[in-house]
Every structure is written in C-alpha cells, then in structure tokens.
Design a protein around this nucleic acid. Structure first.
Lengths: 231, 231
DNA sequence: ACAAAAGTGTTGTTACTACACCCATGG
DNA sequence: CCATGGGTGTAGTAACAACACTTTTGT
C-alpha cells in the first residue's frame, strides 16, 4: 500500500488461454507457433497484453477472438498468475492464464500458425507455457469429479458412449459409461432428450441421446466430506 | 503475443494477502486501516506493489513481514487476480491476492493500524477487498473438506475438541468431534501424540493430544467421485 | 455419587464400483 | 441367429452421520 515518490518500474502483463478440446479421442490444447525470438519456432499459448479499460477476462476473450470463434468457448475460468522473473528472458512480464473449453465436434477455423496438440505429447513450448498447460489439465480433472463442467467439453446432445470417451480423454483413465450415467443422473446433471442416435456400421442398439441440464458451471457435489448437519 | 511499436501503458500490480486466524472461536481476517485517500479510514488487505526480481509470492511475504511474523504463516496459496478497471478509483491497478493461514494460539504482534476482524462481521472495506476476503473464505472451506489444510489453522498439538472448534469457526456450521476424528484418522491426516491435556475447571476426562502427520499441504481425498478403476 | 468432558461402539444410509445380464438393431 | 453395441439389475463396499453408551476425571 506504499505510495511512491519516484515512479517505480512496472511489469508487463499478458493474458494467456489454455484452450482444451477433445479431438479424435484425445485431449488437445491450442498452441501458437512463435515466428520470432525469443523461443522462435517453439509453441506458446495464445494471448496478449492487457489494454486499458479491459478486465483480464475481456482481454483474453478479445485475443482469442482472433484465433477461435469466442462463441465456441463454452467455459472460461481464471487459472492463476505466473510471476517468476526468469519466465521471460527479455523483459519483466507477468502472465495470468485462463482455462477455456471447446465442446467436442466443433472445428473452429484457426489461423495457419496455430495448431491443436495432444496434452499427453506436447511439443517444445516457449516460456513456462508447458507447465501452465499441465496446471490447466489438473484443474479440469478435479472439476470433472465434483461439477457439471463436462458440459463444456461435450456437444449439445450426446450418447453416453460419447460422453464416456470425453471423460476418458480428459481424465486419462478408463471410465464406465454405465456408472457415469448413474452418477450424473442422480446428481441431476444430465437428462435424456427423448431421441435416439443411429448405431454404428456393424449394427447395435440405438443409443439414447442425453444433454446437460444446465450449460453454466455448477458445483454438483459440493461437500464431498464434512458436510453440514442434515436438519 | 503482439510486439509493440509504441510503448503501451502498463497497469500497476499489487500483491494482497487474506490472512485468516481463528481467534476466540471466530474466523478473523487481518485488515489495515487506511490513513489516506482513497478510502481513508476504511479497512483494506495488507500488501503492496511488486518489486523487480520478485515473484508475487516473495512479494507478499515481504509485505507481510512488516505486519505479521512470516514464520507464523503456516500456509500460503494464490487466490486469484482481480482486474476490473473500476476497482481502483484513481489508477489502473491489478491485484493478485493470496490466502494465508495462521495457527490458533499464536498472537503475532501487529502494527497499531492493523487489526483482526471477524469475517462474519466485516467493517467497511476499501476497493474490492471485501469480496476478496469472502473468496478466500470459500477457498478455505472447500479445502477443509478434501485436504489436510486444517494443519495451518490448528496449533502443533491439539485436542479434538479444540480442532472441532477450529473447523466450526472456519466452516460456519456445527461439526462433531467424534466423526471429525474418525474422518481424519482414516485418511491418515492426524495421529495421537501419546499425551493428554489437562481438563477444564469443572473436571472431566483429560483429552488425548493429536497432531497433523504432515504440516505441508496435501490432498487427502483426491477423487471424491469418478475415481479411477481400482486395479 | 454426580457432573463434566472425552472417547468408543453400533446402526443406518448414501453413493458409489463392479459385473452379470438383458434389449435392440443390422447383416 | 448371431455379432455388436446400449441399457438395466443387483450385490458388495467404503465412507460417512447420528446417537447411545462408556470411561476418566473433579467436586
């Protein structure tokens, strides 16, 4: 809270986005190939500097608008602020990262210098962006367990097999469609939409179509333990 | 990632700390009374501007050192970054807030212009600091349920009645010492230390003394639901 | 003996996992 | 009629809440 007699130096501040989408059954992150130094040719998170009169959230939405259609980002939340001085080799720069989720099936047109990369197999990344991506995945994994955040990775209507594939890609382990359905139904997170979806080429029973009841973030399992007394 | 031809304006950046301690059975937050405008006479979070070569975490620790003995802050974690332009009436300033926890029983000497205030009964707060305090309490409440974070609010050795009081103050509802003990024992979060503590003035069975097995933050209940397959 | 405080035992419940089994469709 | 994929039924279980009961102390 000190006031200054001389003007202190100020750090630059950028907003970054860790945008995830399940593509081809794999959790991918959107990365941008740097055209100039530092880290020329390496891959970095999309984003850019904060402008006056902007919040960090509007700033990252503005920067994303040039990479992805913003309407396709179904969920956006702040991940954290990275401030280690050596994170940028040339200047003093803080970065506030956001986690963004794009539903399965959409294929936003992205500029030629951006590409989706599997989180499990990241290329060489610029700055500390590799660890920021992993922090985003941890946040996503946690929230998949106790919230309805799956809505932001799933398409509008989906079969339970499709939803299971989304959860498996994000969580990195096998999920049972049978039990996933019961967990999400009991919590009132998903509901049947009343239609069925055509079977695969080799036949099979048509699958029921479900949807998330709400497409806004909600905590569905608020007190895992230590819940308040019942009456 | 735009590079600039003209130098853009930069926001100031402060680190703030939401420091909680259970005092007299109530969750308190450390606030500082502003001596000058804006918000003269109102209460604000301790903190200050970021200096070059500092991380946000070392910065807030440095600022706290003048208010609280840093060794008494048993846990510190980043809460988030607030960036709404109108949050400061006079200048463009971002604030990254940290959550700090001080164990029960310590009574750090604080400067005369700082004071502990019950979170349930906050005075008029400067800037957006009131909502930052409440965000800190929400973070704390969530983590009490699925981690060992209670170690940072509890003294080194404690009886289960004392620990229950700490949890009740932080959570805001009644907690059963009986069940709290079994939950934390089963998870391996606490252990008996082998001694007993003297009873109150009206007699009563002496209580066993427990301690947290680890005094570093650990997630003790990682997958509340959707846990990976057992084998 | 009795009050006070702490600890234990026991029952019931919920929300899961795991797995066997049943249903609908195409070839 | 069988392969394929989706759905249902059910048993087992871990982790908890609630509450009655017991133990250890002081007065």
């Amino acid at each position: 809270m000190a006031e200054f007699t001389t003007q202190p130096p100020l750090p630059a501040h950028v907003a970054l986005a860790v945008v995830f989408q399940v593509r081809a059954g794999v959790l991918d992150v959107l990365l941008w190939e740097r055209a100039r130094d530092p880290f020329r040719g390496m891959w970095s998170l999309p984003g850019g500097t904060l402008a006056p009169e902007e919040t960090l959230e509007t700033s990252i939405l503005r920067h994303l608008a040039t990479k992805v259609d913003v309407r396709e980002v179904a969920h956006l939340e702040q991940l954290g602020t990275w401030s280690e001085p050596p994170r940028h080799p040339e200047r003093w720069e803080l970065a506030t990262a956001y986690l963004g989720l794009v539903p399965l099936g959409l294929d936003p047109s992205v500029p030629p210098d951006t590409r989706w990369h599997p989180v499990e197999d990241l290329p060489a990344t610029a700055f500390d962006h590799g660890s920021i991506v992993l922090a985003g995945r941890e946040r996503l994994r946690g929230k998949l367990s106790y919230s309805n955040i799956g809505f932001a990775l799933a398409p509008d209507g989906f079969t339970l097999a499709e939803l299971r594939d989304v959860y498996e890609a994000a969580l990195g382990y096998e999920v049972s469609a049978t039990n996933l359905k019961r967990v999400l139904l009991r919590r009132g997170a998903i509901e049947p939409v009343g239609k069925t979806k055509a079977h695969g080429p080799a036949g099979g029973r048509p699958a029921e179509v479900y949807r998330f009841c709400s497409r806004r973030f909600e905590v569905t399992d608020p007190f895992a333990v230590l819940r308040p007394p019942t009456p």
